[in-house]
Design a protein around this nucleic acid. Structure first.
Lengths: 192, 192
DNA sequence: GTCTATACAACGATAGAC
DNA sequence: GTCTATCGTTGTATAGAC
């Protein structure tokens, strides 16, 4: 009659993400998480050794997707189609994880966790721009890629656009990102 | 031989910004600030009543500039020149405060402080996009303005572009922002 | 006015009993 | 798996020395 394996852990992560969204990572204490679950602080510590570990576990799935996106993009040789693929994939990732991205982008706790998850391997923050404009692009293109990536991520998580439905937001973000990177507007919607 | 009025306060804010830059706001304790100044924690408390007050004081000058920029932009009637003015002013503000902006954009402590500073008055985050694309712009233009603003701010503070000198970064950011907003490239550099 | 000394509740974290 | 008890440190607060 005991809980399914991992059930408590999953419930804990759901609770944590909910609290992170409202109070931020820093503003969420282990006590709050424990209270919300009806257990003590020490019980939370049984499932996760540190608060950072909880933060990492919350961000993990989205980051895995991002790494997978980059890995697949690396197999596309022609720069144009590769950029198209990254644009569509990145926007889709951001839109599907809007709530998480909002927390993710505005919290140094999560940002440090991200650095830890991408354990040493060539940073995503280096690979992403390279996939869009090439590794040896001129300064202007590099700045443009950073503006595009940061802008899409932040705008996607912005409370100001929270009311917009996923499909509409996705369309506008793709348009904005293509415009920023100087790629022509698409007519067709790709089949992912 | 006592210190000049406000001298300790200024030194404290400089020290705080330096520590915020390295460890983040959350990661910087009052003890660290006090130690760096060679005083006790309570001495810090004499100059500022709370940690939040320190955070606010660090962000204050840049935010005052931003509000002034918006106030002046509001006096420009024609949308085109007004957008041009905001683009130039915003990029300039970001570039001149690169270090601060890097902390500012990635720390909920500062973000909360910002909300507090802009005490109730119509939010900057609402006024800024309106100055760029008008208050009743279509969805696409609104998304575009958010992408542009967030992108410029984040890219400006990004460690990846920290090596770029101010003049070059400013030029590329203005180009990127104009492209995102669909405004033609400028030949002349404006005299601010 | 400017600081030190001291105290306090809440935090993240650990050890060990049930 | 969950608990109690405890640790050092944090932000905050007050009393009082110079």
């Amino acid at each position: 009659m005991t809980a399914v394996k991992g059930e408590t852990r999953t419930r804990l992560l759901d609770t944590a993400l909910g609290l992170f969204t409202v109070h931020g990572v820093e503003g969420t204490s282990l006590q709050m998480i424990a209270d919300a679950l009806g257990v003590t602080k020490a019980a939370v510590y049984y499932h996760f050794r540190t608060k950072d570990e909880i933060t990492e576990a919350v961000a993990q799935p989205a980051l895995d997707e991002l790494v997978a996106l980059l890995d697949h993009a690396a197999t596309i040789n022609r720069p144009g189609p590769r950029a198209d693929y990254v644009i569509d994939g990145f926007v889709d990732l951001v839109v599907r994880n809007r709530v998480l991205v909002a927390v993710l982008c505005s919290d140094p706790g999560i940002i440090r966790a991200i650095d830890r998850i991408l354990h040493g391997e060539e940073s995503v923050m280096t690979r992403l721009p390279a996939m869009l404009v090439g590794p040896d692009a001129d300064e202007g293109a590099q700045v443009s890629s950073h503006v595009a990536l940061a802008g899409i991520a932040m705008a996607g998580g912005s409370p100001a656009l929270a009311a917009m439905d996923d499909e509409t937001l996705r369309r506008h973000l793709v348009d904005a990102m293509r415009r920023q990177l100087g790629r022509p507007r698409r007519r067709d919607t790709p089949t992912p």
